[in-house]
Design a protein around this nucleic acid. Structure first.
Lengths: 340, 340
DNA sequence: AGACAAAATGTGAAGGTTCACATGCCGCCT
DNA sequence: AGGCGGCATGTGAACCTTCACATTTTGTCT
């Protein structure tokens, strides 16, 4: 090495010669083909290690028409939820032996979706996962452009019939609402996430459904953008509007943190005057003041199931059978209490 | 399409025929080679769009010996800092026209580093960035195995002579310590991150250096694992040890949150009895109770500079010239106050 | 007008793998 | 003993580009 020009790559042929077999036999060893004599296989494997040979992915996918690579298209991963999904999906993919190519669109996508898909497609990815949290992304567009590549949607519209895996945010919303109701609250306000996020919508529908079951309508509905700052402002608006409410259902933990801060700043105690719930269960949430009652989402399960579904689809493109739901879990802490 | 077998890919040759030129000319158009007659170029580009042709990355990198792909190797991205680095690096890479292959090792790496590098190497990546926050990763090992591939270390040992970009955590530590001293604090305890993280070490050295300048030694040093829970426990240990301290320097915001929670639980007011500082400036930190004084890190700049450095290195492997530092910024909020 | 350089385009090979098929060998059945 | 099926291995072509070089066209200078 360090031989002036870049050292020539070790190729399958080098291994074959050294082992005294043909390149095809080496190929078979690599691909775990059954009909190779055990001793031949051993010899080849030995040489592979000795020569430090690594198959060339480019050549391999060129010849095989598949890349053992998956695409993960995401947006808005600056937020806790999507980020966790991404991490867990990648982890599951790797466990399944796939490499992951990541296209991160950012929220203001313009035609970046198009170019991102171009990029991924040009890699001949074997499949794709789209973290389709945001409605504007028009999953159909993706599907069309991927032209036949198996695709799983993650965190998309509740009830979508496309192959998708989502956490059952509706159930989570219902659970949170019911929790407040059980504590005796009747005047309950909502702080939702941005309307173009499916999750925000579904959580809200869950809340409303939960309230309706008890014959209650939301006292007030405000909107935030998932950030603590927006949660602060939304809560401030609620208080300043003079709405008398003793319960506050918030779309995620970060906004809940901001909301609690605003309530305190206005002289309201949590949960003394107002009970607050969040959504996500970030590691921090248990250490908020007060510790936050929230809806925990099993992102790890989401990642695993998403991958499992995708692998099914890669194996048999006809296997698509709609949406799979992952149940959330209500975590009760000290930010909610019985109505005074 | 949907023609039974998988639709044949549109190739350069298809475009060439349609445009009435040779495949080489199409190649030249794609690669922005100067000597192509403008009208020919226009015709070819038109056909490319019409036929929806996309160059095949696998074939391209096989032939060209480069992939326009970068590897980002990371570990522990479940934490805020490394995660932000990752996001920003990917973003910068894409802006520079590179695709990013992501190898996420997780903390307990075993030989996963080895296999990860194998994977990346087999892709013929043009360069690599290693988020080398954790010492155990032995960057040398990576460098050796990458055998000549340009590599930049991110968030590694302070003062390392390897091509690297880090945020100047030492300066950040000094600033935090000096801040407490300026407020009149003299008994100051430390809650550090795990010792195998370079950043934890450097922050601590910064704190100690800052205190030493004022002739002060740390009252007590505790350790956490970056999580809020560990911050809680560390602070609890400090209080329970009976150490009288009025200042608490914490290794990151998450642990600071936990620490504040523990202090309150022990009846100590923040900042009334104890002033607390963090590190990171997460979006949540401004909404803690009290809002956290912390050291903000410019992860975006880190990502940009890391990529810029790597591109220099890819262009000229001899361009390596040591470590580049990005200054942090002390953000003073309400968790610190003058000593009573 | 002729010659020569530069621009524009084309040709053959190579890159490292997999696929489809062909071959050689052995054991077993009737 | 002849033949046949299965296992183990080898051969040629294909995948889609880029590179190095060859060739044709265009333009310019004297």
């Amino acid at each position: 090495m360090a031989e002036g020009g870049r050292a020539r790559r070790v190729t399958m042929l080098d291994v074959a010669e050294a082992a005294g077999v043909s390149y095809q036999t080496v190929s078979r060893v690599i691909n775990h083909h059954p009909s190779v004599k055990p001793e031949t296989r051993a010899r080849v494997l030995d040489l592979i290690k000795q020569l430090n040979y690594r198959p060339d992915r480019a050549a391999r996918s060129l010849a095989a028409h598949r890349s053992w690579t998956l695409a993960v298209i995401s947006c808005g991963i600056e937020f806790y939820g999507p980020m966790q999904m991404l991490i867990n999906i990648e982890h599951s993919a790797r466990e399944a032996g796939y490499d992951v190519l990541n296209a991160n669109l950012g929220l203001h996508q313009g035609n970046s979706l198009h170019s991102a898909l171009d990029r991924l497609f040009s890699w001949r990815v074997d499949g794709a996962l789209l973290i389709a949290s945001v409605a504007a992304q028009s999953a159909e567009h993706v599907i069309a452009q991927l032209s036949g590549t198996p695709l799983i949607l993650i965190d998309t519209a509740y009830g979508s019939s496309a192959p998708s895996v989502i956490i059952d945010q509706h159930a989570g919303g219902v659970a949170a609402a019911r929790h407040l109701i059980d504590l005796g609250h009747r005047e309950i306000a909502l702080i939702c996430g941005p309307v173009d996020w499916y999750g925000a919508l579904t959580r809200r529908e869950g809340w409303v459904a939960g309230l309706r079951d008890a014959g209650i309508a939301p006292a007030l509905i405000e909107m935030g953008d998932w950030t603590p700052a927006s949660g602060y402002q939304a809560a401030a608006r609620i208080v300043d509007a003079g709405a008398r409410c003793t319960g506050l259902l918030v779309g995620n933990d970060a906004m809940a943190l901001g909301a609690i801060s605003a309530l305190k700043a206005r002289g309201l105690a949590v949960p003394g005057d107002v009970s607050v719930t969040g959504f996500d269960d970030m590691p921090e949430s248990a250490y908020f003041d007060p510790p936050l009652t929230t809806v925990a989402q099993d992102f790890s399960a989401l990642g695993r199931q998403g991958m499992a579904y995708l692998i099914e689809l890669i194996g048999d493109p006809e296997a698509a059978n709609g949406q799979r739901l992952i149940p959330p879990r209500l975590v009760v802490r000290a930010s909610t209490a019985a109505r005074a």
